[in-house]
């Protein structure tokens, strides 16, 4: 009798598009007997922006957990930056995580540390020298427009500003993939739009972005690929041809040019 890995082996060992950064191949994920992800297959190309939408409990966060290898498929195979879930040991997971940035609905900032310390912290963990940290902080905080507020504590910032700090923190180590799990869930429409624009700018500079949301109002404004999940299954996965509300303005263009000059993924 073949194991799950044997069955999925053909998929994982098949020819992969070199541009594919994330691949799901007939993936199931079950918590106890409850399937959170049910036979899901899709790929994400390098530099692509994918919006995953669906009602609460549809399996959006489970897909992000699988990408971060915080959970492993009960069937099928997940590939992230060439690393296969079936061949991934727990010890190697931290190496994968260094390639991924995370943004959450609840910001998850360290409340007792300043904006700058929150961003320094993730660089210290991966061993970036102090002088480089100072430069990186200046760069990302300028890019998210919070350099002047670098000494403030998170509670002294608005929700939108806190989320921008979280994005700066996610991007400071130049990850290749950004996972944003309901990043606009706690924000008013104006701040939500600002955060989406920031995520588009990050994507324009080459980072693959996976944006999960249950808010259909936001999705309608997207001129990007939108995947709808319901009860753990993909209901639809389509790329919209015409951007509805997306045009690079002068500020965006300046930002992208600056980021590219820095050879960053932001």
């Amino acid at each position: 009798m073949k194991s799950d890995n044997d069955r999925t082996g053909q998929l994982s060992e098949g020819p992969l598009d070199s541009r594919t950064v994330i691949g799901f191949y007939h993936v199931d994920l079950a918590y106890d007997d409850q399937k959170a992800v049910d036979n899901v297959s899709f790929t994400v190309a390098n530099g692509e922006f994918l919006c995953i939408t669906g009602p609460s409990g549809a399996g959006k966060s489970s897909i992000l957990r699988l990408i971060a290898m915080d959970a492993f498929p009960t069937r099928g195979e997940v590939m992230v930056r060439g690393m296969m879930s079936s061949k991934m040991s727990r010890r190697k997971v931290p190496m994968l995580r260094r390639e991924i940035g995370f943004v959450f609905q609840d910001f998850r900032l360290l409340e007792d540390r300043s904006v700058e310390d929150n961003i320094s912290f993730v660089q210290l963990v991966v061993g970036i020298p102090h002088a480089q940290i100072v430069k990186n902080n200046m760069r990302v905080l300028t890019q998210v427009g919070l350099y002047d507020k670098r000494h403030r504590l998170p509670r002294q910032l608005s929700g939108g500003e806190q989320q921008r700090v979280a994005i700066a923190r996610a991007m400071v180590n130049s990850p290749k993939i950004l996972l944003a799990d309901e990043p606009t869930g706690n924000l008013d429409p104006v701040n939500a739009q600002e955060i989406i624009d920031l995520l588009f700018r990050i994507n324009d500079a080459g980072t693959s972005v996976l944006f999960s949301t249950h808010d259909h109002g936001i999705v309608k404004t997207f001129g990007q690929r939108v995947m709808v999940i319901n009860q753990g299954r993909i209901e639809s996965d389509e790329k919209r041809r015409v951007p509805v509300n997306r045009k690079a303005n002068l500020a965006d263009k300046m930002y992208i040019a600056a980021a590219r000059k820095d050879r960053l993924n932001v």
């Binding site: 010890r91 931290p94 190496m95 995580r97 260094r98 360290l110 912290f121 993730v122 963990v125 991966v126």
Partner: peptide, 15 residues
């Protein structure tokens, strides 16, 4: 939260 963030950015359990 500190541990969670450390794990998210790729800190090993030993670290």
């Amino acid at each position: 939260r500190v541990i969670q963030i450390q794990k998210l950015v790729g800190a090993t359990n030993t670290f």
